[in-house]
Nucleic acid binder design. Structure first.
Lengths: 240, 240
DNA sequence: TAGGCCAGCTGGTCAGACCAATTTTAGAAA
DNA sequence: TTTCTAAAATTGGTCTGACCAGCTGGCCTA
């Protein structure tokens, strides 16, 4: 039966049949290579038609998916632009992970996994510059214990910076998208119980300090444990 | 400064400015609700034009992103179909996670995180039917120690079934897409060192048995540890 | 009955026109 | 000269109608 191993499919995938897909690949490549940078304006559709030597339909059908995916951004009357880097993956990940989300538990659980691991790796790899930025977010939280909206902003930044310090782009993107979703819930929650917010903020700040201390000490397991406690607390507050 | 908290944006997001986006939402909803099931054929583009009361351009610009995203599948001359469920998220996740992947380490590391957690949760939640399916994949591996391609198939299924048993759809999808990528590397690897494959397979099988034993015993930490060892071994084999 | 051929579907592409938002420009007013 | 405004040019969004290229199914021959 070892013939089966020989059946290494000799049939190569049919190459790009459609014009628009070819354009998609080309544009995607230009953005990936950095020829087109975030904020850059693409040539107008009519111009692209001439350059690619195709009809406007094909150009537009290539741009459309890239826009939907969040890689580009179309502004009527003004042009098509390369989206900011953070937004480039956000949308496609939202599509894949959140579009038909049925269970909040899945999301909370996944978040727990992502953030505890991020804390662990951040402790292992954070450089001085990472620590400095995280410190800033801690100060920001401390100075805004009474201002839920601002506090929450620094809170979010704290977690983002830890994710960045973990030096894993994939992990960073995943945390980005999932936290974006959770953020909206937090917003609703805060609006409901504004009186308790300062108490929650104090607890939260203390836990953030624990996490940071562990990261600063380059103690991965401790950082993971501290983040674990924090997420559990936060989840419970959110659920109540 | 507490006014800032009052600045709860009173501006609602502008409703769908573009026609095609509205159609995208509608079609996405129909698929999500199950009105359109995988494999179903959509009405022809001309027909959709009449039903939505819009031009064909708009219909096509709505279908295009959904096709690129993997939710639909266009077959020239035959029609547009709803894609198989597993493929629906695969593509959009690939876009978001793998499209500009620069470092294999990121992927290997993320995989490690996902699979160890999947093993843990599988141990906590796997039902009898989950265990039965996993058992089948173990037998499949045992019977095909000398047939790398088939062995690898059962190997992959083993991990997929554990991911399924973890009962977290988000985790399942992530493992799906990342493993899909890694699978290609494994394929290249096997082609290079066919002689050692049976030795590797025996080691692999033993480790899989450990993992399964822990899951069967509903011992989460043990399952995580066993998966940890397995992934580390597999990663090293792959790296050499 | 078996095989092949053709008409009529389908999606893919093109061209040209018009709309609506935006930017640019040119002219009028200060 | 400067400033403000209104028209013109530019850009993405939509519509129409036409044609091409695959696919399907049924009819028709051998």
């Amino acid at each position: 039966m070892s013939e089966i191993t020989e059946v290494e499919n000799p049939y190569r995938q049919i190459e790009r049949a459609t014009v628009s897909d070819a354009i998609v690949d080309q544009l995607r490549g230009l953005v990936a290579q950095g020829v087109l940078k975030p904020g850059d304006r693409l040539p107008s559709e009519r111009e692209l038609c001439k350059r690619f030597g195709v009809g406007r339909t094909s150009v537009r059908e290539a741009l459309k998916p890239l826009i939907t995916m969040g890689l580009l951004e179309g502004r009527m009357g003004s042009g098509t632009f390369v989206a900011a880097e953070t937004g480039q993956f956000q949308k496609s990940l939202q599509w894949g992970l959140l579009s038909d989300l049925q269970s909040r538990d899945d999301l909370v659980e996944t978040r727990h996994m992502l953030e505890t691991n991020a804390a662990y790796w951040a402790a292992e790899r954070a450089g001085e510059e990472n620590l400095a930025v995280i410190r800033v977010t801690l100060n920001g939280m401390e100075e805004n214990l009474g201002h839920p909206t601002i506090f929450q902003k620094f809170d979010a930044d704290f977690h983002f910076e830890i994710a960045r310090a973990a030096q894993n782009r994939m992990l960073y993107r995943l945390i980005n998208v999932i936290r974006g979703q959770i953020q909206t819930w937090i917003g609703e929650r805060l609006a409901l119980t504004p009186d308790r917010s300062e108490i929650l903020a104090r607890t939260s700040l203390a836990q953030h300090r624990d996490i940071f201390a562990a990261i600063e000490a380059k103690d991965g397991p401790a950082a993971r444990a501290a983040m674990d406690r924090h997420i559990q607390t936060a989840t419970q507050d959110l659920a109540k």
